[in-house]
């Protein structure tokens, strides 16, 4: 039997809680007290191009980050497999699962979009670990969802720096490091050319808005292609 995404994520959270204790605080999802503007009625800013890097895929193969962030519209987020903060990775994955459902229902849109999840903890999240996690979270549906990790912390740090993704380790009272990583939840929308076009944080992490933004990029790409054709003629 296939569980709904939220149920699976809850199970994930409960199972992960056994690994580490964290006070998640008051769980408040972002409020959305507006009707999102229609796709194509606005432009998304070209925030920054992404610097390339060498990461590992879930089979342990070396992969250029750019191959996972170009040619399709990409939603990229950073995670770690044992994250238990309900408003952290599980929340991001729930949003992505919601979006995946919307995308899969649109046969023309789905092949133009991919999700990429990059581990914040290359030491624990080996290719084998993210492979198992990916199987669990992505549920083998016909939608491209890549899980990547780094060969080392040293090789991960420039990637985090480029994206402006902070991460740090919580210490126990005795000063030893715990298994809790803190990071500001960010979801990056990247266009087909590898340029970041939107960054969603908890204050603005609404599937409807993200879905419209994806469609806006598709419309933009279509219009650009049409203009190029006209110019050639």
């Amino acid at each position: 039997m296939r569980c709904p995404a939220w149920t699976r994520l809850l199970l994930l959270w409960v199972s992960a809680s056994a690994l580490g204790a964290v006070d998640p605080g008051a769980a408040t999802a972002p409020r959305m007290e507006f009707k999102p503007p229609r796709p194509g009625t606005y432009q998304l800013q070209k925030i920054q191009p992404i610097a390339d890097a060498a990461l590992l895929d879930s089979a342990g193969r070396l992969q250029k980050l750019s191959t996972a962030t170009t040619s399709k519209i990409t939603l990229l987020t950073f995670f770690y497999t044992y994250c238990v903060d309900p408003l952290g990775c599980p929340f991001a994955h729930a949003v992505l699962s919601d979006l995946r459902g919307r995308l899969i229902r649109d046969a023309r849109l789905a092949p133009q979009v991919r999700f990429v999840s990059v581990s914040l903890d290359p030491t624990t999240d080996t290719p084998a670990t993210i492979s198992r996690y990916g199987d669990f979270v992505s549920d083998h549906q016909k939608f491209e969802w890549q899980f990547l990790t780094a060969r080392s912390v040293e090789q991960l740090l420039p990637v985090l720096d480029d994206f402006g993704q902070d991460v740090s380790v919580e210490l126990a009272p005795d000063g030893t490091a715990t298994r809790t990583l803190h990071h500001m939840l960010k979801l990056f929308l990247i266009d087909q050319n590898g340029v970041i076009r939107e960054i969603y944080t908890l204050a603005y992490l609404q599937p409807e808005v993200i879905f419209n933004d994806i469609q806006t990029l598709v419309i933009e790409s279509r219009n650009t292609a049409a203009r190029n054709r006209l110019a050639q003629e």
Binding site: D121, V153, S168, V169, L171, R179
Partner: peptide, 13 residues
């Protein structure tokens, strides 16, 4: 005091 400058590597072992 609960959050100190340390390495990611140390933190996840």
């Amino acid at each position: 005091q609960q959050l100190a400058v340390t390495s990611l590597e140390t933190g996840v072992r």
